[in-house]
């Protein structure tokens, strides 16, 4: 288990290295990163890794994360597993459908 720390809110949770950053959070019923499709397509779980290393798993929609961003540690939390203690910043937002 690795500690995942959210830089801005100082929230923290423990995530296994066999599950994604987002799946680990969802399993605990936590809500610090927005959750959508959990499959790399909708982009709401976009984060920037500030500290620590992750392993990418699965494809990410290029509409939401460009190659350029990816090279700077920006990725989708549902498509990366922690390899060490992680500190991250949430970038993704729930953009509201009108109702």
């Amino acid at each position: 288990m690795h500690a995942v720390l959210l830089a801005e809110t100082s929230e923290e949770y423990l995530c296994g290295s066999a599950e994604t950053l987002l799946a680990g959070m969802v399993r605990l019923g936590r809500k610090c990163i927005p959750v959508g499709c959990v499959n790399g397509g909708c982009g709401v779980c976009k984060v920037a890794i500030v500290k620590g290393s992750v392993r990418k798993c699965g494809l990410m929609s290029r509409v939401h994360v460009s190659e350029e961003e990816e090279s700077h540690g920006v990725l989708l939390a549902c498509r990366a597993t922690p390899m060490s203690e992680i500190e991250l910043k949430v970038i993704g937002k729930m953009k509201k459908i009108i109702w």
């Binding site: 709401v44 929609s61 109702w99």
Partner: peptide
């Protein structure tokens, strides 16, 4: 009650 992901997430 609405479900947040349902009213905000789409492709």
């Amino acid at each position: 009650s609405l479900v947040e992901s349902f009213t905000t997430v789409y492709t």
